[in-house]
């Protein structure tokens, strides 16, 4: 995984709450068995509307998505993270994230920056006034900066450390293989097996 320290890019204002993962990537795109190539699937239903914000040419190349509260609710599909990344997003900013989506984002290297809703509103207004406005997300300092504004964001310490280092979870866990084996030797005899 690529380490994440500081990122600067333009933003997309997504003025919607409860953006569920069925909207981020509709189910029909989940049939693929690959890990990449989902850029066409991102918000596929909403993109059929010419007025949808991603269809605005001024938003081309944007890398920071700014969404309303409860972003990523519903299905656990990690494809939602992959689609956002394949499209080019590095950061999602919201005032509330669904748990599974936020966990998946951390695994895949997509930064989810949790801010107060008034920061979301200010960012929406600023980027709507000027689509070229650069937004800088600094994971080391935990800040989002745009125009004259600098706001702090929340992220779990451990997730932050992993993102900064670009570490692979499985590799970290396998360092505890001895502890896992010891735990297994203590499991009760009545615990069921599938085979």
């Amino acid at each position: 995984m690529e380490p994440f320290t500081v990122h600067t890019g333009t933003a997309v204002p997504l003025r919607a709450s409860n953006v569920d993962t069925d909207q981020i990537i509709p189910a029909k795109y989940l049939k693929r068995i690959s890990r990449h190539g989902y850029e066409d699937a991102l918000f596929a239903a909403w993109r059929t509307d010419p007025a949808f914000v991603l269809n605005d040419p001024a938003r081309a190349g944007a890398t920071v998505l700014v969404a309303g509260p409860d972003f990523g609710t519903g299905s656990s599909r990690e494809h939602a993270v992959w689609a956002l990344q394949d499209y080019g997003f590095r950061v999602v900013i919201s005032s509330r994230f669904a748990d599974i989506f936020r966990g998946n984002s951390g695994k895949g290297g997509l930064l989810t920056a949790l801010v107060e809703q008034d920061v979301v509103e200010a960012l929406w207004a600023a980027t709507e006034a000027d689509p070229t406005l650069p937004v800088t997300v600094d994971l080391t300092a935990r800040t989002v900066a745009f125009g004259a504004t600098t706001a702090s964001f929340e992220i779990d310490d451990y997730v932050r450390w992993r993102l900064l280092e670009g570490l692979d979870d499985i590799g970290i866990t396998l360092q505890s293989a001895g502890l896992i084996a010891a735990f297994e030797s203590r499991r009760p005899a009545f615990a069921p097996r599938t085979a």
Partner: peptide, 20 residues
Amino acid sequence: FGIGTSEVEHVLATQTLPLK
């Protein structure tokens, strides 16, 4: 509880999950 695909891989490989 539900998990994402990275976690599926993690459980397949280690039978554990790092969780808060």
